[in-house]
C-alpha cells in the first residue's frame, strides 16, 4: 500500500491528483450518506410498489430505472386518495400566517426587553426562556381544554349566557386554532434578544433625542438593521411549523377542510400499505421545503449561522 502511494506521489502532478482525491473522497462519501434516503424517496415515487421494494435490494434504489416502468401513477393515485392541493394550501397558509405573527410580535417584545426599562422585564424574560423546555406533547391536553373555551367572533357554540347576551366561542375546526397557540415561541424571542443586544445603543438614544417615539425607533432604526435575524427566525419558524403540524390538528380539526398536509399521511395507511403512493406523498410533503431551501440556500445557512455567533 505504502509502495503504491510512494509511486503515485513520485511526480508532483500525480501527487496533486492524489491529494485532490484525498480531499474530495470523504466529502463525497458523506454527501452520499446524507442524500441516500432522500434519493431513494424521490426515485421510488416514480416506480410501482413491487419494483421499488425489489430495488431496495441494490443500487437501483437510487437510480431512475427501469425507464419503461417510471410513471406519475403514484402521484395520480395520491391525489385521488386525499385532497392533496387543499392540504398543501392549508399547511402553507397556517405556516405563513404563524410565521408573520411571530416575526412581528417576537421582535416587538424583544425590542422592549432590550431597549426599554419596565417593571417585570427580568421576570418576563426568564419565564419566556423557561417555556423552551416544556415540549408541546406534554401541554397538548390542557391546551385542548383551553382552546375549546376561548371566545371568538363567530364561535360555533355558546360559552356562557349572561343577561340575555351570549358569549360565543370554541376554536375547533378553524385555521386560527392551528395558528394562535404557536405564535408565542421562546426561541424566536431569544434570537431577537441576542441580536438586538449587539446593536449600537447610541443610535437608539440619538433617535430618542430627536423626538422619535418608541415605535418609530423600532420601525425606522432597529428594523432596517435586523434583516439577517428576521431571515433566521422566519426560516426556522417555517421549517418547524410546516414539518410538525400533526398531533395538534388531529385533536382540534374535525373537518377535512382545515387539515394540514402531515395529517393527510394517515390516509395512506388504510388497509393496504402501498409504498409507491406513500413515497409520492412523502415527496409531495418534502419537495416544497427542499425547493424553498435550495433557492434560499445561502441566506438560509447564513441566517442559521447567526444563531451561533451570538451564543
Amino acid at each position: 500500500m505504502n509502495g503504491i502511494i510512494q509511486a503515485a506521489t513520485a511526480t508532483p502532478k500525480a501527487r496533486e491528483a492524489v491529494l485532490f482525491a484525498a480531499r474530495y473522497l470523504p466529502l463525497l462519501a458523506l454527501a452520499f450518506v446524507f442524500l441516500f434516503p432522500i434519493l431513494f424517496m424521490l426515485m421510488s415515487s416514480f416506480k410501482p410498489t413491487a419494483t421499488l421494494l425489489q430495488h431496495s435490494n441494490d443500487f437501483r434504489a437510487f437510480l431512475p430505472v427501469p425507464l419503461n416502468e417510471l410513471s406519475l401513477d403514484n402521484y395520480r393515485e395520491a391525489f385521488n386518495r386525499a385532497p392533496v392541493r387543499l392540504f398543501i394550501f392549508n399547511s402553507l397558509l397556517v405556516t405563513a400566517i404563524t410565521m408573520a405573527c411571530t416575526l412581528f410580535l417576537a421582535s416587538l417584545a424583544a425590542f422592549a426587553l432590550v431597549f426599554l426599562n419596565w417593571w417585570g422585564r427580568a421576570v418576563a424574560l426568564s419565564v419566556i426562556l423557561a417555556t423552551m423546555i416544556v415540549p408541546f406533547e406534554t401541554r397538548a391536553i390542557p391546551l385542548l381544554l383551553i382552546v375549546n373555551n376561548l371566545p371568538w367572533f363567530d364561535g360555533n357554540r355558546e360559552l356562557i349566557t349572561f343577561a340575555g347576551v351570549s358569549l360565543k366561542g370554541g376554536w375547533f375546526n378553524t385555521y386560527h386554532v392551528q395558528i394562535i397557540p404557536f405564535i408565542a415561541d421562546a426561541l424566536s424571542v431569544f434570537l431577537f434578544v441576542q441580536y438586538f443586544k449587539d446593536l449600537p445603543k447610541d443610535l437608539v438614544a440619538a433617535a430618542r433625542v430627536d423626538g422619535a417615539n418608541w415605535f418609530q425607533v423600532y420601525a425606522r432604526i432597529v428594523l432596517p438593521l435586523s434583516g439577517p435575524i428576521f431571515a433566521t427566525v422566519a426560516i426556522l419558524k417555517f421549517i418547524e411549523m410546516y414539518n410538525n403540524q400533526f398531533i395538534w390538528p388531529n385533536m382540534v380539526v374535525q373537518t377535512e377542510q382545515y387539515r394540514p398536509i402531515m395529517v393527510g399521511l394517515q390516509y395512506f395507511f388504510q388497509l393496504n400499505t402501498a409504498w409507491g403512493e406513500i413515497m409520492a406523498y412523502l415527496s409531495i410533503i418534502s419537495v416544497p421545503v427542499m425547493i424553498f431551501y435550495l433557492l434560499l440556500q445561502r441566506a438560509f445557512i447564513a441566517s442559521i449561522a447567526a444563531t451561533g455567533v451570538k451564543g
Partner: peptide, 10 residues
Amino acid sequence: SIIAAAVSGS
C-alpha cells in the same frame, strides 16, 4: 378525534 371531541363537547 372522538376523544378530543368528547372532551370539548363537539
